[in-house]
């Protein structure tokens, strides 16, 4: 891998190291990770559990502070970002988690609409229309006013996707979005993500163990023992 950063890189990591713990218990989990994700790409990251995939994802998602190396996400250098900068970066990223973590006391529509609170520049009337469009686009047009408890696992994950897309993110980070779903719902969710990436030209970095969904990737990164082991191109 070259040191030069491609100018259409959305994520670019150079020599990123990361440790957990302090003193004697300090344990390195990422070793010299260098990787780029380019605009419009769907990149899958696989690897055994404990290999550091999720840690790398939280670094890219500006959820943890970079300890060593350089990491730029959406043209922001996270290796010297303040807490406030990191919050700003997170607002431009759509997150999809293994657990949907929808607020149980808000309906599907309210859960999605809540995200517009982060974007006061969008007029209130707009947000309702955008919310309904999003939920329709993930196939939940008839479940707008359902509370999460009354939705199936797949439907909840689709609400979570709609929520992640609410404010037109420039990057989507997903952590095992299909792990809690049966194969059909999992497939639907992945197809949905693929379609959204194509339509919106929004790059997706997806951590997964799920071999059923590898075919959607433009590239697959394999992580082992805190190192990117191989970069395999599907095409």
């Amino acid at each position: 891998m070259t040191e030069s950063i491609p100018n259409n890189a959305v994520i670019s990591a150079r020599h990123v190291d990361f440790w957990f713990g302090e003193g004697e218990l300090k344990k390195q989990v990422l070793f010299d990770v260098s990787v780029d994700v380019l605009a419009g790409e769907i990149v899958l990251m696989t690897g055994p559990s404990g290999s550091g995939k999720t840690t790398l994802l939280t670094l890219i998602g500006a959820l943890r502070r970079v300890q060593a190396g350089q990491l730029s996400v959406l043209n922001r250098p996270l290796h010297d970002a303040s807490d406030e900068d990191r919050v700003q970066t997170r607002r431009e990223i759509g997150f999809i988690f293994q657990q949907h973590n929808l607020l149980p006391f808000l309906t599907a529509r309210q859960n999605v609409e809540l995200m517009f609170e982060l974007h006061p520049e969008i007029p209130r009337g707009e947000t309702r229309r955008m919310t309904d469009d999003l939920l329709r686009s993930v196939g939940l047009g008839d479940r707008l006013d359902y509370y999460p408890a009354r939705l199936s696992g797949g439907q909840k994950q689709r609400v979570a996707i709609a929520r992640a897309l609410a404010a037109n993110p420039r990057l989507i980070l997903a952590d095992e979005p299909t792990a809690a779903l049966d194969s059909q719902s999992g497939r639907d969710v992945v197809n949905l993500l693929q379609e959204l990436a194509r339509n919106r030209a929004c790059p997706i970095l997806l951590v997964t163990h799920d071999p059923r969904i590898l075919d959607v990737a433009d590239r697959i990164l394999n992580m082992e023992d805190g190192r990117i082991q191989e970069v395999r191109s599907e095409h």
């Binding site: 998602g61 959820l63 919050v87 700003q88 997170r90 607002r91 431009e92 990223i93 997150f95 988690f97 657990q99 973590n101 929808l102 607020l103 149980p104 809540l114 995200m115 609170e117 982060l118 929520r163 992640a164």
Partner: peptide, 18 residues
Amino acid sequence: NHLPQYATLKAMGFDDRY
């Protein structure tokens, strides 16, 4: 009871103040 959901909101860019 809602700590995971609150953490999720924070991950998505909500600050403590909200």
